[in-house]
């Protein structure tokens, strides 16, 4: 008699404990196709965890393009052009003097360099005279 009551009580509890958690996906955890770019110089950060579409970097091992969900890696950079394709579709180019690009898990890319400037900041005349002085 007593055991029957226990069994009945258990049967009553059971359904509520086995409610499956709601499998619902919100916009927040949908997989992003953007990569978070941080482009930092010792004296300034040009990008700070900004969502961008693609980043092309001049690695020592060759030119490479980095998209979202890239495999984590560390790349030494040659002095050269870094091209950033932004969310709006436009692209920006910076010339970096060399440093490191670190692709972290979770679509994060950190680029560190000593000096980096947009192309507009360079003067063609000065470059020509520098080149002439090397010869």
């Amino acid at each position: 008699m007593n055991s029957l009551r226990v069994a009945r009580a258990a049967a009553r509890i059971r359904p509520s404990t086995f409610v499956a958690p709601l499998q619902r996906r919100s916009y927040a955890d949908a997989v992003s196709d953007k990569i978070k770019l941080t482009l930092a110089l010792p004296h300034q950060s040009i990008y700070k965890s900004t969502d961008v579409v693609q980043v092309n970097i001049p690695a020592e091992s060759g030119e490479m393009g980095v998209l979202a969900n890239h495999v984590p890696s560390i790349e030494q950079l040659k002095p050269g052009l870094v091209e950033i394709i932004e969310e709006s579709g436009g692209s920006k180019q910076y010339f970096l003097s060399g440093g490191f690009a670190i692709v972290q898990p979770g679509s994060q890319l950190s680029i560190n360099a000593v000096e980096g400037f947009p192309l507009d900041d360079f003067s063609a005349d000065v470059l020509e005279s520098l080149q002439a002085s090397l010869k």
């Binding site: 003097s97 000593v114 000096e115 400037f117 900041d121 360079f122 000065v126």
Partner: peptide, 22 residues
């Protein structure tokens, strides 16, 4: 040292305004 040399060349090839700052 290599990074410093590369950075120096980059600074020297800038236009007047950003170069003086850099």
């Amino acid at each position: 040292r290599y990074l410093a040399v590369a950075a120096r060349v980059v600074r020297r090839s800038l236009k007047e305004q950003p170069r003086l700052q850099a």
